[in-house]
Amino acid sequence: MNKVPPLQPGSSARTLLAMVFSQNVSPGAPNSLLQVAVKNNQQPVWYFSDKGLLHVFFGEDGKMERTSFLEAWKSLPDDNEFSKEYPNSVISSIDATVEHLAASNVFFIAKRKNANMDVLYLSAKVPRGIPFLIELTAAVGVPGAKCAVKTPNREFVPLFFEAMESLIN
C-alpha cells in the first residue's frame, strides 16, 4: 500500500504503485479494466476504474532477430494466429510508425511491399516471456490497417488487439 502525505482540498500529489503482471487475476477472460480503491479520511473508500492497456507491460526484451522471429512464427500452430482490421487507422509514415511503436516496446524486424501495401513484421513481449509476433499491413495515407498476431498465449489476444489499436491510432 502506498501512502500519500495528507493533502489539502484542491491540491494533488503523485505516487508510484508497483504492479505485477498476471497476479491476483479475476476469474474469466482477461480484460483491460483496472479497478482501484483509495482509502481516505473523508469517506471510507473511493472506488474508480480505468483502462490499463496491455502495451504498458511490453518489455524492453521483446526485440527478436529476424531468424528467431521466422522460427517462432513457423513453430506456433496456425490456430494461434489471429487478425483484426482497424478500418479507421491511417499510417501516415512507416518510419514514424516504427519509431512510435518502438517507444512502447513494439520492435521492428522487417518490412516488405505487397502491391501498394507495406507489411511490417514486429515483435513484443510481456512478462513471463510471452511473445507476440506481429504482422501489420497498411497502405501509407489510406484508411485501414490489418494486424495479424501469433502468440503461444491465446487468452491475451483481445488485450493485444486493444493495445495495438491505441498505438496505431
Rank of each mutant, 00 (worst) to 15 (best):
R14D: 08
F161W: 02
L122T: 03
K39M: 03
E60M: 08
Q23P: 01
K51R: 08
Q43T: 12
G10M: 00
F108S: 10
A110L: 11
F58M: 08
N2Y: 04
P77I: 09
Y47I: 05
K74T: 12
V142C: 03
L167C: 03
A145T: 10
Q43C: 05
G144D: 08
K150I: 08
W73I: 00
L34Y: 15
L53C: 02
T151K: 01
Q42Y: 12
I91T: 04
N41E: 12
I130N: 08
L76C: 12
G52C: 12
D118C: 05
K125G: 01
G52I: 09
Q8T: 06
K74Q: 14
S166K: 04
A18K: 13
K51T: 02
P44E: 09
L76N: 05
A138H: 05
A103G: 13
G141F: 00
A145V: 11
V25K: 04
S32H: 13
V106W: 02
P44C: 06
K150Q: 09
N105I: 00
K74V: 09
A102M: 13
N169V: 12
N153G: 00
V4M: 06
P77S: 07
N114Q: 14
S22D: 15
G129N: 07
N24V: 04
S26G: 04
N80H: 15
L136K: 12
V119F: 04
Q23I: 06
M1G: 12
S26M: 08
F108M: 13
P158H: 01
N116M: 12
D78T: 11
N169I: 11
S12I: 00
A124K: 01
A72G: 03
R14Y: 15
P152M: 03
K84G: 05
S49I: 01
N40C: 10
F57H: 02
M117S: 04
V56S: 03
P158V: 05
V106T: 03
Q42A: 14
E71C: 00
I91M: 11
P44A: 10
A29S: 14
P152I: 02
Y86F: 15
I109G: 04
P77C: 06
E65P: 04
G62W: 13
F107M: 10
L16I: 11
E165R: 05
N88R: 12
D50C: 04
Y86M: 08
K63M: 10
I168P: 06
E85K: 10
G52R: 14
V36Y: 03
R112M: 10
G28P: 02
I134L: 14
V56E: 03
N105D: 06
G129L: 07
S68P: 01
G28H: 07
M164I: 10
P6W: 11
F108N: 11
E165N: 14
A124R: 01
L70S: 07
P152D: 12
M19N: 06
S26N: 08
F69N: 00
Y121I: 11
V126P: 01
E71P: 02
N31Y: 13
V119D: 08
V90R: 03
N2S: 09
A138P: 06
P44Q: 11
A72Q: 08
A148P: 06
L136H: 08
S11R: 10
V149H: 00
V25W: 02
M1H: 09
V98C: 14
A103D: 13
V149L: 06
V90K: 05
T151D: 02
N114F: 12
Q8S: 05
E99D: 09
F108P: 10
K51C: 00
L101F: 15
S68M: 07
Y47L: 08
L16W: 07
V4E: 04
A115V: 07
L34V: 01
